[in-house]
């Protein structure tokens, strides 16, 4: 893969990268730092990408690591209030997703928003497929409860 192709594919992935970051990090500046560090690492390691077909999964996995590195360096925070939804966001979905525990939210985003298969998510997160399935089940249950009073949300 040429550098141009590599860069073009990354640019095309910007919405996915953004949603993964948004799922993990509350501050816009942290999301920007995470994606910059992830892209830098991916660029440095691009020669080790053995199969171009897995580039997207590979990059998302790197990004998740960077998001968690940033989380880890931050002092523990108690968030009493959810951040305001960004322009264009579905408020109900935004709030219900962000209300999920961290472990449940990311599989939900990766599966239902990004369309990754359970097997792919398991590789990204380094957990068994069964764990992903159980987290998706728990996440769906929690979101269903949060959204049950709003008629437009059905499952």
């Amino acid at each position: 893969m040429t550098d141009d192709t590599f860069a073009e594919r990354i640019v095309a992935m910007t919405p996915t990268l953004y949603r993964v970051c948004y799922s993990e990090l509350r501050e816009a500046s942290d999301r920007e730092d995470a994606v910059q560090e992830a892209l830098t690492r991916a660029w440095q390691k691009r020669a080790s990408l053995r199969d171009e077909r897995f580039m997207q999964t590979w990059l998302v996995r790197i990004l998740i690591n960077e998001c968690r590195n940033i989380q880890r360096r931050r002092p523990a925070q108690t968030l009493d209030e959810l951040p305001a939804p960004p322009p264009g966001a579905d408020v109900g979905l935004h709030d219900s997703l962000l209300s999920l525990p961290d472990k449940l939210r990311l599989p939900m985003v990766l599966h239902y928003i990004e369309g990754y298969k359970v097997e792919e998510i398991a590789k990204m997160l380094g957990v068994p497929q069964g764990t992903v399935k159980s987290r998706l089940y728990a996440a769906r249950r929690e979101m269903r409860e949060k959204l049950s009073e709003e008629a437009e949300y059905t499952w």
């Binding site: 990354i10 640019v11 910007t14 919405p15 990268l17 953004y18 949603r19 970051c21 948004y22 799922s23 816009a28 500046s29 999301r31 920007e32 730092d33 994606v35 910059q36 892209l39 939804p85 960004p86 322009p87 264009g88 966001a89 579905d90 979905l93 935004h94 997703l97 985003v109 928003i113």
Partner: peptide
Amino acid sequence: KDAFGSPDAGFELAV
């Protein structure tokens, strides 16, 4: 996909 809106300008600039 609408849950988090679209990438903001700062994020796109970072990429």
